[in-house]
Nucleic acid binder design. Sequence first.
DNA 1: CTGTTAGCGCCTTCAG
DNA 2: CTGAAGGCGCTAACAG
Lengths: 337, 337
Amino acid sequence: MEKPATIIDIAKALNISPSTVSRALNNHPSISSQTKEQVNELANKLNYHPNLTARNLLKKKSGIIGVVVPEITSYFFSTVITGIQDVVSSVGYKLIISQTNENFDEEKKLIHEMAQMRVEGLLVSPSFNTQGFEHLEDARKAGIPVVLFDRDIPGFESSKVFVDVYDGAYQAVKYLIEAGCQRIAHIAGPEHIPTFQERMSAYQNALKDYNRELYPELIIKSTGFSAEDGVEACEHLLSQSFDALFCVNDAVAIGAMHVLREKGYKIPEDISVIGYDDEPYSCYFSPGLTTIWQPVYDMGMLSSKILLDTITKEKQTIRKEILKPELVLRQSSVPLN
Amino acid sequence: MEKPATIIDIAKALNISPSTVSRALNNHPSISSQTKEQVNELANKLNYHPNLTARNLLKKKSGIIGVVVPEITSYFFSTVITGIQDVVSSVGYKLIISQTNENFDEEKKLIHEMAQMRVEGLLVSPSFNTQGFEHLEDARKAGIPVVLFDRDIPGFESSKVFVDVYDGAYQAVKYLIEAGCQRIAHIAGPEHIPTFQERMSAYQNALKDYNRELYPELIIKSTGFSAEDGVEACEHLLSQSFDALFCVNDAVAIGAMHVLREKGYKIPEDISVIGYDDEPYSCYFSPGLTTIWQPVYDMGMLSSKILLDTITKEKQTIRKEILKPELVLRQSSVPLN
DNA sequence: CTGTTAGCGCCTTCAG
DNA sequence: CTGAAGGCGCTAACAG
């Protein structure tokens, strides 16, 4: 394990100056092709890798973009990240990815560290417990542009890319209403979480808009948003009668369907179920889960494109993009009459 | 968007030397607490972030570990990465994560770039199309220790962390045999992929070991390993009669179950199904999918611990660890008699 | 307790 | 076409 070769090593060995080596390596026009050949050959032989740290110090750029997400194990975030990566790697950027685990302190720490690393831009989806945006403001003051995606921090002025959560939820409930469902239940997520709140108010407003009665007993606020939480919430719900169930996401819907089937309900004949997210496996349940698809990969691409724009053009224009979700009809919901 | 403040800015403003500022910032003992206070206060006011690039150049370390995986959207790899991250972030390392998309050229390029970035270590799970290991050897020659995980490159000498794939598959088939299944089919993955080969030979050997006849017509080699591939493979298989089905992974098993149910087969009464991977949603199918669980998070933790060991201790000892998978019994397989 | 000096590896003027 | 010099921001001797 030798220490890496440097430009100087090559220069000495060839009895030329470091600058010449540098230029040769970078294929500078004003270097004889002969010298270039010599240099490149030796570089190869010495297994020379240019020291990006040094170059970055000089150029004052790191070639790195920071991504801060609540977690990476979900289909949702891992797909967003893939979208980001496909865009930024095509222009030579690398990604530093960190998870907050929905922990605000962790988020602050991570953003801080990324600022120290001199990432050239920051793509962040704030944790559910994020309070305020001083940490992001700090980064920006340090010259690091920030793009928020998927989750908002109201009041923080930056480019943002979201999905129209309200619209998705509204579409789902509207469908159930139009399909003739009378008592539509809702398993909601934890209420302090904006995106879940939106899904709930879309549910409520849709019912209102269509002059349906709103039965408070048909709304269950789950403590989490995993399949297990769906199981638990649905068991509570069983004391009520209902013919449709709109769940805060697919995982919860899967858990709920599991319970319903076990209790002998037929889906969708007895109860229609709709989820949210269109997880990759949702189509393989029986019945296939009707759900809301979101342009996840696109969200990654778009946010990173916007970020790259502000990095390269140094223009401080702020862009806000709202992507549209789509209702994906499968067999877990009754067909329209 | 000002340019970031430097130590020199602080030094000038306070009329002291840069070194003093540096020391104060790093809480060096031989600096008066008064100076420290002044410095820290001003640093705060200027929103000073130490330039890690400069520090790294000096210290010849980047504080970054490179992770190269085929993809990050699967439960498998995203969980491994989480394990890695939990370990390395606790000692202050950052992660650069890249995906090869099973493309060998991409893998070579990524490893190369990471070497240039001077990552301090490399955790790699090679693509299915990786030929040889010169690229990894290069990295190691550049002083970057490499740990392979999940997938092997035979002949490459390094620390490695794998799961005993053969053992998992053998457990699955053994269970089916002992449960009395007579005609056990297998949907295999693409045959050039070692891990899938192993699953198949475990299947074959288990049958042999228990003196069961091996019906070649009950083995289908799928072209891929997604749920859709499972659907397709299973449809081909339907021309045969069988009472058990061991699938190369959960996704394929999910697809296969989907087909079987549609064709009116009862699972497990007519056909037992076993998958491989224990995806998070596999327990929510009806019936719940019997499968092989692998210590995925642990694999991430262990590989990164080994890597950190070789980084810090500079000891070149090579460790090979084989983790044990476990059979998870659910309702998709008939119970033992 | 603090300042001076030198240098990490590279690139980019400015001179030849 | 090539060389010399300076500096990116920081730290670690070495001197006071």
